[in-house]
Every structure is written in structure tokens, then in C-alpha cells.
């Protein structure tokens, strides 16, 4: 049953991928003076050398985590639109903690920093859950608005007391290298945080699929009247799911900082949250499928970057290509959700 659904998903995924790249190529074809080069770099750039390959892989790490964050919230039938802000604020707090942890061993400091990020992100998201439960505030709106506010708050501190005066831009001081994830494929950005991301997706997969909590989340998400009727504490499940969702987002940003940037920078995570929602949509809410769909997103990002470096594709054009591909894929996913919902991966 599971295998069947997954193979079907894979087929759909690959098909849209091909269509999407064809559409992207057509757009480049109409705008580029030298379209063949541009298309070649767009399609093959990310795998043309180990540097871009590594960047593609490392770029997918935060998307895997925000994707998981969206998956968890969706599974419980809640919508966390505040991923962007939860991630940013949690990462900011975690970075500040990291800056005060000078001298600790990596095996101790990294889990601690990640823990802080998880808790802060989780609480930020859970607050929307509390509003939903106590005052029936739609969490879709509240999480988004609170998230936006959190971004401004973090930016304020990043520009003020926590700004590195020698940075020349809005950024914190550098975290000591001893607290960073080690590089895997230098000079690319790929770092050992990738294993953390994979491990977390596996854990989320198992929890959602095999645990009591996963059961409660799925029942609540599929029909909360039924869950309530069956004796599941629906409010509690919502709260936990939002907390985990925000926590995942926080981890996503923090792993990125500990692996790639080495410091908190203004706007470093722009788009991670919303792309995470798209990733979850493409992955059809399956925590394992989140990995390939995050890779796809990262592939597009790097492809666009490479083709803007190597050919005459302006950033604007590459954004349009990305958007087209994204719409195609999500529209397909949505259509599939609506038409083929009986076959959707809810079976178990």
C-alpha cells in the first residue's frame, strides 16, 4: 500500500519535473541571446562541479526542515504560515546563545544551540496555538502576523545591540569556528548538518507514522470532530503540532547559520519559510518525500544562480523561471490532492 502510493508520487514528481524544466527552458529561450548556453547552465549547472553540487545539497538543508515544519502542522490540520518569522527569530536567539558559549566542545555546544532554537521557534508557533484554543483566533493569520513581527524584532536587535560594528552590514559577530558544523565538500558550503537534517526527517517520519502522537496528529488532522469524538485531546494535539512545527523551523535556520554563514545576517533566511510550505505541498505531506522536494527547490535556486553567473540570464528571469516551475508543480500537487484524494497517502 505504502509502496504503491510512493511509486505513484514519484512518477508524478518526475513527470512534473520534466515539464517544469521544459517550461523554464522556453522562458529562457525567449529572453536569452544565447539560450542554449543559458539552458544548459540552468539545467546542469548545479551538477557541473562539486562546488555547485555541494551548495545545492547544503541549500536544501533548511528547506528540508521548514518542509518538515509545514508537514507536521498540515498533518494536524493546522496551518503555520509563520515559519519565516519563527525560523528567523529562533535562529537569532540561538546565535546569541552561541556567541556566549565560546570554548565549549562541539559535541556539547551544537546540541545545546539547536535545542535553544527548537524551543524558541516552538514557543513562537505554539503561541498561535494558544490564541486559537483560547480565543478562536485563526492560526493561519496569527502565525503569519506574529511571524512578521518577530522578523522586525530580530532585525532591530541585529541592527542595534548585537550588530558587529566591523561587519559593514547588519550581521552579528562570527560564531567561533569550533561550534560550527564541519565542512564536507570544500570549498562548497556542504556541511555535516546535512546528516542532522536527514536524521530529523527520519525521526519525524517514524513519529508521524508509528507513534501514538503521530496517530493523534493524523486523526486530528483528517477530521477533528472525529478525533474529539474518539477521545483525543484535539487542542493539545494542535498545540504540540504547532510547537514541533515552529521548532523544526528554528532548527532549519540555526543549522544553516552553524553550517554556512557562521553568523546571523539580516535576511539570510528570506524565503525559507514559504518555500518550506511549497516543499511540503510537493512532498504531499510525506516527511521522507520532503528530502527530494527540498533538493528540487535548491536545485532551481542554484541553477538560477549558475545561469546568471555563466550566461546572460538576469536574476529577474531566473526568478520567473523558478516561479513558473513552482506553480506547475504545486498546481499539479493540488490537483492531485483534489482529484485523487482517495489514493492519497493517508492510508496508514
Amino acid at each position: 500500500m505504502f509502496m504503491k502510493v510512493n511509486r505513484r508520487w514519484l512518477k508524478v514528481f518526475l513527470f512534473t519535473l520534466v515539464v517544469a524544466f521544459i517550461c523554464g527552458s522556453v522562458i529562457i529561450l525567449t529572453t536569452s541571446k544565447n539560450p542554449l548556453t543559458a539552458i544548459r547552465w540552468f539545467c546542469l549547472g548545479p551538477v557541473s562541479n562539486t562546488y555547485f553540487l555541494g551548495n545545492m545539497l547544503s541549500g536544501s538543508i533548511p528547506l528540508v526542515l521548514t518542509g518538515l515544519a509545514a508537514v507536521i502542522a498540515f498533518s494536524a490540520g493546522t496551518f503555520n504560515l509563520g515559519l519565516e518569522g519563527q525560523l528567523y527569530f529562533a535562529t537569532f536567539c540561538a546565535t546569541i546563545v552561541a556567541l556566549h558559549l565560546e570554548g565549549l566542545v562541539r559535541s556539547f555546544s551544537i546540541p545545546l544551540i539547536l535545542f535553544v532554537a527548537f524551543i524558541v521557534g516552538g514557543l513562537a508557533a505554539a503561541f498561535s496555538g494558544v490564541l486559537k484554543i483560547l480565543f478562536r483566533v485563526d492560526e493561519l493569520l496569527s502565525s503569519f502576523l506574529i511571524g512578521q513581527a518577530l522578523i522586525y524584532i530580530a532585525d532591530y536587535f541585529l541592527n542595534g545591540p548585537f550588530r558587529d560594528p566591523f561587519a559593514g552590514l547588519s550581521a552579528s559577530k562570527y560564531i567561533s569556528g569550533s561550534m560550527m558544523f564541519s565542512k564536507i565538500l570544500p570549498p562548497s558550503d556542504l556541511h555535516s548538518g546535512v546528516f542532522v537534517a536527514i536524521a530529523i526527517s527520519v525521526v519525524v517520519y517514524f513519529v508521524l507514522r508509528f507513534s501514538n502522537l503521530g496517530y493523534q496528529i493524523k486523526v486530528t488532522g483528517s477530521n477533528h470532530d472525529f478525533a474529539h469524538y474518539g477521545g483525543i485531546k484535539v487542542h493539545w494535539v494542535w498545540l504540540v503540532a504547532l510547537f514541533l512545527s515552529g521548532g523544526m523551523a528554528g532548527l532549519g535556520g540555526t543549522i544553516d547559520v552553524l553550517g554556512v554563514h557562521g553568523r546571523m545576517m539580516k535576511g539570510f533566511s528570506f524565503g525559507y519559510g514559504f518555500n518550506g510550505i511549497a516543499v511540503a505541498l510537493i512532498a504531499r505531506n510525506n516527511p521522507i518525500s520532503v528530502i527530494p522536494s527540498a533538493l528540487l527547490f535548491s536545485y532551481l535556486e542554484v541553477g538560477a544562480q549558475v545561469s546568471s553567473i555563466m550566461a546572460d540570464v538576469t536574476p529577474e528571469v531566473s526568478k520567473i523561471v523558478q516561479a513558473t516551475i513552482f506553480y506547475l508543480i504545486t498546481a499539479e500537487s493540488l490537483a492531485d490532492f483534489l482529484i485523487g484524494k482517495k489514493v492519497a497517502a493517508h492510508g496508514r
Partner: peptide
């Protein structure tokens, strides 16, 4: 159908909603 079941979930999951804890050990089903 609307309250007594979750139509998207499997038959088995629908059957255990009031006693799923019987099938769990240490939080795992």
C-alpha cells in the same frame, strides 16, 4: 460518517480511535 469516522484514514485507524493505547508500548504503536 462525518463524526463517527475519518473517511481519509484507514479502516484500521478508524477502528482503534477509542483504544489505540492498547496497541502502544512506550509511545509507539
Amino acid at each position: 460518517i462525518q463524526v463517527g469516522l475519518s473517511t481519509k484514514l484507514s479502516v484500521a485507524y478508524n477502528l482503534i480511535v477509542n483504544n489505540y493505547k492498547k496497541f502502544s508500548r512506550a509511545g509507539w504503536l
